[in-house]
């Protein structure tokens, strides 16, 4: 049972890691990298590491995404239109 849960999470995580590299919109890429952090949190909980899971949830899925999104604004890469392009292509 726990193996199947881990399998679903791992597949989700690897898919969003590939999406980080392939998505043209940087906003979507940052969101996908947060999904990777979230999957990592679930795996840490399954591996009986609650302390690490808490840190990863606060840092990987929250703080890091906020820092990167803020950097997108400062770097002039915050284009929601590109996200729409991605959607049209898909």
């Amino acid at each position: 049972m726990i193996t199947w849960v881990a399998l679903v999470v791992v597949v989700l995580m690897l898919a969003s890691a590939v999406a980080v590299l392939l998505l043209r919109s940087f906003v979507a890429a940052v969101a996908a990298s947060s999904v990777v952090g979230l999957g990592l949190t679930v795996l840490f909980v399954l591996m009986r590491a609650p302390d690490v899971a808490m840190t990863e949830a606060a840092v990987g899925a929250g703080l890091s995404g906020v820092i990167l999104a803020l950097a997108l604004r400062r770097l002039g890469l915050w284009h929601i239109e590109a996200a729409a392009e991605d959607r049209d292509r898909a």
Partner: peptide, 29 residues
């Protein structure tokens, strides 16, 4: 709370510190 109970339950200085930083950052955002 997370900082103060770090020696009893999952948590501690690092996790609580990140949450504290997030509190200030919500205001700045």
């Amino acid at each position: 709370y997370v900082i103060a109970h770090g020696h009893l339950t999952p948590g501690g200085g690092f996790q609580g510190g990140v949450i504290l930083a997030a509190a200030f950052f919500v205001i700045i955002l």
